[in-house]
Design a binder for these strands. Structure first.
Lengths: 237, 237
DNA sequence: TCTGTTATTATCACATTGATAATAACTAAA
DNA sequence: TTTAGTTATTATCAATGTGATAATAACAGA
C-alpha cells in the first residue's frame, strides 16, 4: 500500500451558493411586481468567523457525495428537498480556514420560489446583486452585508457563483430551475433581468429565448390587462 | 475544536490533462504541415490500474497548492517549468480509486510546442481527438488508446478537458498558450482546427479572431510562396 | 514570363440583434 | 358605449455578424 495513506492530508468541506427568486408584490393597484435574486445565508454562532454570514455546507464524510452532503445540510436547516446543484469551483488556498487545511467543494444551487418559501429561520434569504464591481446583499431594508461581513472566503465564492450564473443563463437552460413549471414570458424576462441586473427589450428577449420555451394553451387571469400565455421549458433541443 | 477533525476524511489528489500542439512537417516539397493536438500520458507501473495509461498528478500534501503539486510532478517527470493551468472539475465518485476515497482535483493544462519538446520518456505525448462521440488517442501509428486503456476515471477527465478546451477557445484567450509568442494567422487557424476537429474558411476565421491578435512588422521567410505576417496576442480588451 | 504555392482581402447572401413603433386584449371608469 | 390605463405580443428597420465563394497579392523556381 502506498505510504501516502499514512500522511496527514487536507480536510474537505462543501459550500453551496443557493439562489432563488423573490417576487415582491407591489401595494399599489395594477403595478408590476419587483423580482429580486436572493441567496441563502446563515449567521455563524461559533468561532472562527463568529457572527459572520456564511454559505450552508459542511465537512464531507468519507462515504458521501458532495451533492448529498449539501442536500442533507439544507434539509436539516430548512426541510427543503428540491434543489438543483452543479459544481462551481474547488477553493484550495492554504489559509482559508484557520483551524486546518480545508478544501471547499463549492456548488451553485438554484431553487424556485415555491421551494424557497418553505425555509425556516435558521437561514435567511438575502437579496444579492452587483453594485459597481462588488457584491452587496441585503434583507428587508434593515440589514446590509458587504465584503467584510462574510466568513471564510465565502464572499469570493458568492461572487464566482453569481458570475457563473450570469454567464450560464446566456447559453444554457439553468434559468428554469428558478421558475415554476409554468410561467409567462414576462416572468421569465424579470428573472433574467434580476440575474443580469439590467433591462432588456421585451421584443428582443422573446426572440432570444424563443427556442428554449414551449407554449401551452393556458393563460394567466390577472385583471386589468391582456392575459399572458403560459409557457413551459422546452424538452428537446 | 470541532470533532470533525478526528474523523477519517477523503484523500485528495491532482490530475492534469495537459495539451500541446505537434507540427508534423511534411516530407514532400512545399506542402502544409499537419498540426495535431496532443495530450501527456504515462503508463502506470503499479496497481491499481497497472499498465493502464494515466494523467500526471499525485496526492496533495497538506501545505501544497494543487497548481504547485502539478508543476512539481511534471517537473520531476520532464524538467518542464512553463505550463498554463486552470481548474477543470473535482471528481468525487465514491469508487474512483479502489484503495480509498480519493477526490481528484483535475486541471486543464496547456503548453506550447517548444516547451513540450523538452519532455523525457517517462511520459508520452499522444495525439488526441474525438472520433464520433468517443475520445481516441494514438502515438506514432503504432499505439492506439480507447476508453478501456485508461486508468481510474481518467478517460472521463480527458473527455471533459477536451470539451472544455473546445468551448473555451471560442470565447477566451487560452489558445495562445499553445502557440509561440509570435505566430502567423495560418498557424493560429491550424491550432484552432486541430482542437475543434473541423475546418474553417480562412477569410471567416480571420474576421472572427481579429480582435484577439496584434500584428507585428515581421514576416515569415519560407520559400516558394508569399510571406505571412507575424502576430502576437493582443493585450488590452 | 509562367506556374505552383500560400497569404490576404473583397463581396454577396443570409441570419442575428438592438432599437423603436404598432397592435392586441383586458378592466374599470366616464 | 366609449375611453383611458395597463400589460402582452408582434412588426419593422438599421446595423452588425457569419458562411460561402471568388479575387488578388507575394514569393520561388522552372
Amino acid at each position: 500500500m502506498d505510504s501516502i495513506f499514512n500522511y496527514e492530508h487536507p480536510f474537505v468541506c462543501t459550500d453551496a451558493a443557493i439562489f432563488t427568486i423573490n417576487t415582491q408584490e407591489s401595494n399599489s393597484y395594477r403595478k408590476l411586481p419587483d423580482i429580486n435574486l436572493e441567496i441563502l445565508l446563515y449567521k455563524r454562532s461559533t468561532d472562527p468567523y463568529h457572527d459572520k454570514w456564511c454559505l450552508p455546507g459542511g465537512f464531507l464524510n468519507n462515504d458521501e457525495l458532495p451533492e448529498d452532503n449539501i442536500s442533507r445540510k439544507i434539509f436539516e436547516k430548512a426541510h427543503v428537498d428540491q434543489c438543483y446543484l452543479e459544481q462551481l469551483y474547488t477553493f484550495c488556498s492554504l489559509d482559508r480556514d484557520p483551524r486546518a487545511r480545508v478544501l471547499s467543494l463549492s456548488y451553485l444551487g438554484l431553487m424556485n420560489e415555491a421551494q424557497s418559501k418553505k425555509f425556516t429561520n435558521e437561514t435567511t434569504w438575502f437579496t444579492v446583486q452587483f453594485q459597481n464591481k462588488d457584491i452587496i446583499a441585503f434583507h428587508n431594508n434593515e440589514l446590509t452585508l458587504t465584503k467584510q461581513d462574510f466568513g471564510f472566503d465565502h464572499y469570493h465564492i458568492i461572487r464566482m457563483a453569481l458570475e457563473r450564473l450570469q454567464s450560464k443563463i446566456l447559453y444554457s437552460n439553468i434559468i428554469f430551475h428558478l421558475l415554476p413549471p409554468e410561467f409567462t414570458l414576462t416572468q421569465l424576462q424579470n428573472v433574467y433581468e434580476a440575474i443580469l441586473g439590467k433591462k432588456d427589450q421585451a421584443a428582443n428577449f422573446r426572440r432570444k429565448i424563443n427556442d428554449l420555451v414551449q407554449e401551452t394553451d393556458k393563460y394567466t387571469s390577472d385583471k386589468g390587462h391582456r392575459p399572458a400565455k403560459l409557457y413551459t421549458k422546452k424538452m428537446e433541443g
